[in-house]
């Protein structure tokens, strides 16, 4: 077991061994979740606060469920409706919550780096549940677990990430994670949605689905993040769907056993064909949701362990 971090703020600082440790434990939780085994002792007596400064249904529910399955006392705060609206700064909000002695803070924020900033000011474990277009580490971990279970391995796979890469924290975390695990990564997007300088990260860049999807093992579609766009990045949704939306024809360029992934929520008929998304032979989208809970349980367990160890070392009762 090697996972010594105090927070899970991103994939960038993780070592491949830490990723493996997280995934192995997640795998165990995935199996036990299916069997209905509960582990209410793991986080018993610990307080988990979900602070979502940005709308979220599935991620917040997933973290909430993961915490409850491990026996934590879970509180979810809709931060848009709170004192943030009254002009309180992020740091003050963090200090206020910190004074209530939580053990785990799960934070989503619309701005890159905001969760890092907050983590510097609190003395509990922080999980980044998405900070602007920067990182979303648990999503990359659940994607990795889904791939590993479907393909039997997480290295030397050819993986295409398609769509709105510019605005996607999911893409960044996945590029980092899949790169660390030594996979071949291909990015496919219209050039307006491809971040500058991204090729320097050791990925292949395409603006054509046929070329990009050629012989890949995994097709990862991204949601078109209309809410992050401050102008026209694409001429229209129908042209986007025509050129970059995943349908059966385009999927035909990939390997015959290629799996289809999507972090959700989907824009059916914009980035992915509805029928394809529901095709249980190709789509693992529901599995991704299932793995999400397992990955978050694993991350929280490991962070809680480290937190207890740190507090014990300081002579403070956990």
């Amino acid at each position: 077991m090697t996972f010594r971090a105090s927070h899970l703020l991103g994939i960038e600082p993780l070592h491949p061994d830490e990723i493996r440790t997280l995934l192995d434990l997640s795998d165990r939780y995935a199996e036990e979740n299916r069997k209905g085994v509960r582990h209410r002792d793991v986080l018993a007596g610990m307080t988990q606060i979900n602070m979502f400064f940005e709308n979220s249904t599935r991620t917040q529910a997933s973290f909430e469920l993961a915490g409850k399955r491990l026996g934590a006392d879970v509180m979810s705060m809709a931060m848009q409706a709170s004192s943030v609206k009254k002009g309180e700064t992020l740091i003050d909000t963090a200090l206020t919550l910190n004074a209530m002695h939580p053990d785990l803070l799960i934070v989503r924020h619309p701005q890159a780096g905001a969760v890092d900033l907050l983590a510097q000011k609190v003395n509990c474990a922080v999980i980044n549940a998405g900070d602007g277009p920067h990182e979303h580490p648990t999503q990359a971990l659940l994607d990795a677990l889904t791939i590993r279970r479907a393909k039997g391995r997480l290295h030397r796979l050819s993986i295409a990430i398609c769509g709105d890469i510019a605005h996607s924290r999911v893409a960044r975390s996945n590029i980092l994670l899949l790169g660390k695990m030594e996979n071949r990564i291909r990015l496919i997007a219209p050039p307006t949605l491809m971040p500058a300088g991204i090729a320097e990260l050791g990925v292949e860049v395409f603006d054509d689905m046929q070329q990009g999807l050629a012989d890949v093992d995994v097709v990862m579609m991204l949601r078109l993040q209309k809410e992050r766009m401050d102008g026209g990045f694409i001429p229209s949704e129908r042209e986007y769907y025509h050129r970059f939306g995943l349908d059966a024809v385009k999927l035909g360029y990939a390997k015959p056993d290629a799996i289809v992934m999507h972090p959700g929520p989907m824009n059916r008929g914009v980035e992915i064909d509805g029928t394809l998304a529901d095709d249980i032979n190709r789509s693992v989208i529901q599995t991704q949701v299932e793995m999400g809970v397992a990955v978050r349980m694993a991350a929280m367990e490991l962070l809680a362990q480290n937190l207890r160890a740190r507090r014990a070392a300081k002579g403070v009762m956990a």
Partner: peptide, 20 residues
């Protein structure tokens, strides 16, 4: 408009809005 850093690999990695 709206840029916080210079566009490029660093801006893309950090998820910050960049200007060319």
């Amino acid at each position: 408009a709206g840029a916080a850093v210079t566009s490029g690999k660093f801006a893309s990695l950090r998820g910050l809005p960049g200007v060319s």
